[in-house]
Amino acid sequence: MIAQRAGTTALRRVAGKPNSFFTANVAKLGLAQPLSTTQTRPVATQKITAADAQALLAKQRLNRPVSPHLAIYDKQQTWFGGSAWQRITGSALSGGLYVFATAYLVAPLAGWHLESASLAAAFGALPLAAKGALKFLAAWPFAYHAVNGVRHLAFDLGYGFKRQTIVKTGWYIWGVSVVGGLYLAFFL
């Protein structure tokens, strides 16, 4: 179909701007009479309601690329960004609290033992490595959220907005939180 249309277009162009070769050979080619300059398209339009048009538009918009894309930014900003990890660590800690508290409330109905004494006893019975790993799993997000939270409060007061400062403190937060998490997990 496209090839057909391209052919027609070429012929129309030639007909509009005749060159010497073409005009000399028109008779030979047998094209003088039947050459049509109206373009035909093998498609048909149809009327649709305004609501359908809007629905179609909304559907078309879903095909647009999503922007901004995560991969186009500097790695530090996207994958080690303080604000993203503030949210991740915060929702991990709060999510843990919400899950534990709900479990504590239904514990008597379900027959679980989640009071402090049995929790401490169960934790104490674990091997040393497991204890340390579990403590670090709780201590690191806590340390990160606490230290980075202070950084964000400083941002909110208007401090530390120099580009270099943001980048530098962003890395400090990671170092401090890992060291702090290890300290809380293994030396406290």
């Binding site: 809007q54 538009l57 909304a58 918009r61 879903l62 647009r64 999503v66 995560l70």
Partner: peptide, 8 residues
């Protein structure tokens, strides 16, 4: 992150 449903 596929786009959420939208309307105009």
């Amino acid at each position: 992150l596929p786009p959420l449903p939208q309307r105009v």
